[in-house]
Design a protein around this nucleic acid. Sequence first.
DNA 1: CACCTAAGCGGACCGTGGTCCAGTTCCCCC
DNA 2: GGGGGAACTGGACCACGGTCCGCTTAGGTG
Lengths: 230, 230
Amino acid sequence: MNGSPSYTIGTPSCAAPVGSGVIPESRRELSLLPVGEPGPQLRADAARNRARLLEAASCMVAEQGAANLTMDAVAAAANVGKGTLFRRFGDRTGLLLALLDHRERQLQAAFLTGPPPLGPEAPAGERLRAFGPAVIRHEHTHDDLYLAARADVTRNYTLAPHRLRLTHVTLLLREAGAGGDTELKAQVLLSYLDPMLVNHLLTRRGMSLERLEAGWYDLVEGLAPGARTA
Amino acid sequence: MNGSPSYTIGTPSCAAPVGSGVIPESRRELSLLPVGEPGPQLRADAARNRARLLEAASCMVAEQGAANLTMDAVAAAANVGKGTLFRRFGDRTGLLLALLDHRERQLQAAFLTGPPPLGPEAPAGERLRAFGPAVIRHEHTHDDLYLAARADVTRNYTLAPHRLRLTHVTLLLREAGAGGDTELKAQVLLSYLDPMLVNHLLTRRGMSLERLEAGWYDLVEGLAPGARTA
DNA sequence: CACCTAAGCGGACCGTGGTCCAGTTCCCCC
DNA sequence: GGGGGAACTGGACCACGGTCCGCTTAGGTG
C-alpha cells in the first residue's frame, strides 16, 4: 500500500510448468502442424528470454488467475523489456495461447496416439464418443486459461488446435459411417465443446460433468446413428 | 490532416435507426423480459442524452464499422461527457448491445408472434426448422455489430436474448416430441447459430447460406427425429 | 581474431476503455 | 413557488495493451 506503483513479483518460487520447446511468435498460429511447431530456432538470448517470460507468466497465472495477468507485470517479473514480450508472443492472447500450448499437446497426444478408447486402436465410433468427455474434462481443469485466451473471439476457429480437432472429428465421423455434411456436423460437435459453453453450463448453470457427457453421447448418436457399432 | 487531435462528426446526417424506447443501463441485461424492458423511466435530460448517444453511435457504426467505434468519439459526437456515456451503458459492450437491441426485437417479434412458419400458428416441428435460417440470416445482415458486441465473451450466455431463444427452442423441442435432455439439445442448436460461428463459416470458410441452412435441418432431424411431422 | 550485419532488445510513448468525484440539474413535496 | 436531496453530468485521471525506433549483441565470415 505504499507509493510504489507497480507490484513486483521478484523471482517467484514456483517451478516452470512449461516445456522449453521453442514455440514461434504471433502469426505462426496458422500452422497446420499439431500445435505450433518450433520453426526457425531462436537466438540463444531470445530463447532464454522466452523461457523466462513463460515461467514468469505461468507463475503469475497460478498465483492470481489468468484474468489478472498484465503484460507489464509479466515483462517486469521476467526482467525483460515490454517490447521483447510483444515481439515474442504478438499480443496478450498469444502469450496465453503459448501457456496453453503444452497442455494442449497432452490432449492431442491422447487422441492421436494414445490408448483406446481415445487412440487409434479403438473403432471410430468409440473414439468419437470418447473424444467429447476427454475434451470437456481437459477444458474444465484449465478453464481460467481457456477463458482468458478466448477473449479474442475472432481467432478461435483459425487456431491450429481447433483445426486439428476439426479434421480429427470429421475423419472419425466419416469412418463411423455418418452421411451428409460431415464437416458441418464436426463443427456442431466442436461447438458443443466450446470452453465458454462448457464453463457456462458447469459453473453458471450448475450442470454436472456426467450430464454434459451424456449430452455428448446423445449428440453423437443423433449425428452419426449407430456409430458405436460401426 | 491538421493538428486537431480528435475527429469531430458534427451533427451527422444519417437518421437515427434506433427507437427511442428507454433501455436501461448495464446490469439490466439480466432481465427475463423479451429483451430488456424500460424499467424505471429516466429523467428527461438523461433520456435526451441517451437518445443523442445512440444516434451518434449508430451513425458512426454505419460510417466506419462497429470495430472502429471508440467511446471517446461517441461521447464527443453526441456533445456529452464520457462519464455520462459509461453511466448509461456500463461499458462498450453495453452500448453495442443497446444498438443491437431494436434489431433483436424485430427478430423476436417474428418468432414469437409473427406469421407461420416462424410464428405460433405453425406446428412446432416447422417452427423449429424455420428458426435456424431466420436467425442465421438475421445475424448475417448485422454481423459486424454482433461480432463487436461478442468481444465480451463472458456475457453471451446470460444475455436476455440468448435466454429467450433458449427457452423458445427448448419448448419447441418438447412440443415436437423430442426426448432426452431437451435443454442441452437446445443449447446445441443455439451453439450452431452463434454469430461467430456463422460468420466464420460464411466468410472465412466460404460456405453458402444454403449449406448452413441444410446443416440446420440435418441437426434438427438428428436431435428431434420426425419433428417435421409432429 | 576483428569485423559486419541482421536479429534481438527495451523502455518511452500513445490511444482507448473505464473510474471518480465535485458541481449541477431535475423533480418531488410542502 | 421554493426548498431539499437524489440522480445525473462531465472531464480530469488512471491502467493496460500495443507500437516504435535507436541501441546492443550474437554469431557467421574472411
